[in-house]
């Protein structure tokens, strides 16, 4: 049975070795007001530090929080557990965040969530891999193979504990492990900006760009100062191949992009663009019907690092 009346629930997977800093990120989400009913699947409650005053109720495997989040341990078959979350009535999550255990292969998790059983129910928003700058360069054998899986599946790589590693270590790490087009965010103390983790709700790039202005009550901490957005629109159809080339070669300062495109190859319906870090996806969306076909793309990148004329020229070059 498909739940057509619910939009697909976005999922973020956070991978990384034990001690890399995943828990700090999870704590930050669980302890802040993010305006979304989130389900956070963690490996171990013990490692998570949830403010006692936030806890509404708890069982051995699930904690409900005042901010609408639920936190559960990854205790059984992943498919079954995700299905159960999706079947919740009142607490059906609007977002699912999965912590991949330090020893599990995140590609397998992402693969499983793309099974046909979950089509129309889940969409992988992003995969973040947190790596410890100091520890990462010493990996060998099976651990090195697992590190490759983590980096391969990553949309965004968070290089954590930069302050603890020497510049030489960081250089050596980058030399050995990074790849072209990598989105690398250097962080300390696991401080990861939430707009990189979450692509919807208060952090929806479209909303960020169009309506949000940081005021005195803004809960987004410093995100607005770290990132900026740029948008582009056109009423002429775009070439699919050209658009793909542009998306693949966007500068690494671009972290997210969202949009609706009008493609020459798909004249009758919208093409929905979703870009997170080094991964972009274009999928058919709703028919244009009576609406005027039009492309509109919002790009979010590091403040001061986006070359607006270059972006403008690149997207203009997609016009078929």
């Amino acid at each position: 049975m498909k739940h057509q009346h619910f939009p697909p629930v976005p999922v973020t997977i956070v991978s990384g070795f034990l001690g890399a800093g995943k828990t700090t990120l999870l704590n930050k989400i669980l302890n802040s007001d993010i305006g979304l009913r989130m389900a956070v699947m963690v490996n171990d409650f013990g490692a998570i530090n949830i403010g006692r005053d936030l806890i509404v109720s708890e069982t051995q495997t699930m904690v409900s929080l005042a901010n609408g989040c639920i936190c559960c341990t990854v205790e059984s078959d992943l498919m079954e557990q995700v299905s159960r979350l999706l079947a919740l009535r009142e607490q059906r999550p609007e977002y699912i965040l999965i912590e991949a255990s330090g020893v599990s292969n995140p590609s397998k998790i992402a693969g499983t969530l793309r099974y046909p059983q979950f089509q129309d129910q889940l969409v992988i928003d992003s995969v973040l891999t947190v790596i410890d700058a100091e520890q990462f360069d010493q990996l060998e054998g099976e651990l090195a193979a697992l590190a490759m899986e983590q980096l391969d599946i990553a949309d965004i790589v968070v290089l954590n504990k930069c302050d603890l590693a020497s510049p030489a270590q960081v250089r050596a790490m980058k030399q050995r492990w990074l790849y072209p087009g990598v989105r690398l965010l250097e962080a300390r103390f696991g401080e990861v900006p939430l707009e990189l983790v979450l692509g919807v709700g208060a952090f929806d790039p479209v909303r960020l760009e169009s309506s949000h202005e940081c005021g005195a009550h803004c809960t987004h901490a410093d995100h607005a100062h770290q990132f900026e957005s740029w948008s582009w629109s056109s009423d002429r159809p775009l070439s699919l191949a050209a658009l793909r080339r542009v998306l693949e070669s966007l500068p690494s300062s671009v972290y997210r992009a969202k949009g609706i495109c009008c493609l020459a190859e798909l004249p009758d319906r919208r093409a929905v663009l979703h870009l997170v870090g080094s991964r972009s996806e274009l999928e058919p969306g709703a028919p244009w019907a009576e609406d005027q076909p039009m492309s509109r793309v919002v790009v979010i990148g590091e403040r001061g690092q986006l070359s607006l004329p270059q972006l403008e020229a690149a997207f203009e070059g997609c016009v078929a």
Partner: peptide, 25 residues
């Protein structure tokens, strides 16, 4: 071709053509 159980055929997002990557099932 429909996706098998416990696996899927990776496809081009727009055309639906198989990319050549097959997963699990």
């Amino acid at each position: 071709t429909p996706d098998p159980r416990h696996g899927y055929i990776e496809r081009d997002g727009i055309t639906g053509e198989p990319t050549g990557i097959l997963v699990d099932g």
